[in-house]
Simulated assay, not measured.
Amino acid sequence: MTGRSDVPRWIALPALVGLALLALPLAGLVLRVEWGDFLGLVTSESSRAALGLSLRTAAVSTVLCLLLGVPLSLSLARSSGHWSSVVRAVVLVPLVLPPVVGGIALLATFGRRGWLGQHLEAFGVEIAFTTVAVVLAQTFVSLPFLVITLEGALRAADPGYADVAATLGAAPGRVLGRVTLPLVAPGLVAGTVLSFARALGEFGATVTFAGSLQGVTRALPTEIYLQREVDPDAAAALAFLLVAVAVVVIAVVHRPGRSPW
């Protein structure tokens, strides 16, 4: 585990402790699941409704992340001025905020009494505590994952190919679609998958901004939280289902032999 000459042997002990701290709770969850009733627990009406809503909203929020995050990543990667540092800081804020704070911020903006939501309501548009609110909350927390991943890939890519294409007369849009994006495709795929996974697992911002109405705003993490009080076995089974999705995501992003970053 520590065969390199610049890694002292004693490093292995705290490394193993850190690994155990991460792995043991996952093992505990696996041991907690009632495997004999697993299918019944994860296919109940409320579980299926929550899982279906989570998959649909996470897919929509991932599309939004692509539509908004790719241009934002390009702007940040191709800029070095003071404004880009400010924008990057804004992009990173959702990564360090407690999700419930993000939900309160969304509610203060798009809620019925929010500074923007009250004007939208005058036109009959309500966002808070609707399915749209779930999508916005998921996009708010997952967009930074796509932006920072793709920006890093763009900065690492060789700009010479794009310069040659432009010299040969290719329009900027053609250079972007035929040269730049294919060069950073691994980073784009990694950011997209991570954004989807983050959206699928979002809880705090969603429950604060969208509430918990079955079939409308009750996503899978919220269902797990509610089941924890009334049916711990169902909560453990659904939690394992989310962990399994996370493992699949990690397997896709971190394939052996290459780094998506």
Rank of each mutant, 00 (worst) to 15 (best):
P159C: 10
L181T: 00
Q138M: 12
G204W: 01
A234H: 01
A205N: 10
P144G: 10
L213Y: 06
G169M: 00
T167R: 08
V132A: 15
E151R: 09
G201D: 10
L242G: 13
V164E: 12
F196A: 01
R198Q: 13
V184R: 14
A219G: 11
V184F: 09
A219L: 09
A133D: 11
F196T: 00
L238H: 06
A199N: 05
D163P: 03
D158A: 06
E229P: 02
G173C: 07
L213H: 10
P232K: 03
A165R: 01
L213T: 15
L194N: 05
R174T: 13
G187V: 06
A235D: 08
E229Y: 06
S212A: 15
I224C: 08
A162Q: 12
A197C: 14
V189I: 13
V147D: 05
L194I: 01
P182R: 03
L242I: 12
R155M: 07
D158Y: 05
P186V: 05
L194V: 02
A165L: 00
G187H: 06
Y161W: 12
V184I: 06
R155L: 08
T139D: 02
L168Y: 14
F203R: 09
Q214P: 15
T208A: 09
T139K: 02
T180Y: 05
P232W: 13
T149Q: 15
A153N: 10
A156Q: 13
T208V: 14
L181Y: 06
L241N: 04
L146S: 07
R155Q: 13
R174G: 03
E229C: 02
R198P: 14
L241K: 02
T217S: 15
